[in-house]
Amino acid sequence: MTDAFDQPLDDVDVAILEQLRVARRAVDPPPAELDDRVRFAIALTDVEIEVARLQEDVLVGSGARATERTRTVTFDCDRMTIMISVVDLPEGLLRLDGWFAPPDRRRVELRLASAGSAPVSWDVMADEDGRFVFQGIGRGLAQLLVHHAQDGGATVVTPSIVL
């Protein structure tokens, strides 16, 4: 059904809109990796999720040597705040220390997609203070899932970030 107020476009209007689309995409295209990041992030088995939004992503430390740098990332949603710190280990690997509040013994899953290989998942249990560690992980696209506690509820999911 065509809306009454929807005046028809003539050839020039259509051409202007098409040129506008082409020109804007040429000037400000989405980043090449955006589709991959989104596809990775939404390839989940459970859709009963709560999204923890990226609040802050900072690099601290002297920076003189790679091993002295720490990256701290904070995610936040109504039910939970998640913080992680990522440090470089030898041989290009990483250590990820995290905690969430309010604390609970919940299963924490790290999904990781390294270039050219299928995504892998690691599971750890957080302690009663909500702390968890992933040691010796590779680089790539990463996403954290804090699974629901015994009493049910949604799994808290972060967007994907590049490690």
């Binding site: 400000d28 955006l34 989940l44």
Partner: peptide, 26 residues
């Protein structure tokens, strides 16, 4: 384009688009 029209830099615009897709799931 929608995210950029709100004046966000590229990194934030990417995060916003991604968050919208994640929110879509439920």
């Amino acid at each position: 384009q929608v995210a950029r029209a709100q004046g966000l830099p590229t990194e934030e615009a990417s995060d916003v688009v991604q968050t919208a897709w994640l929110e879509l799931l439920r």
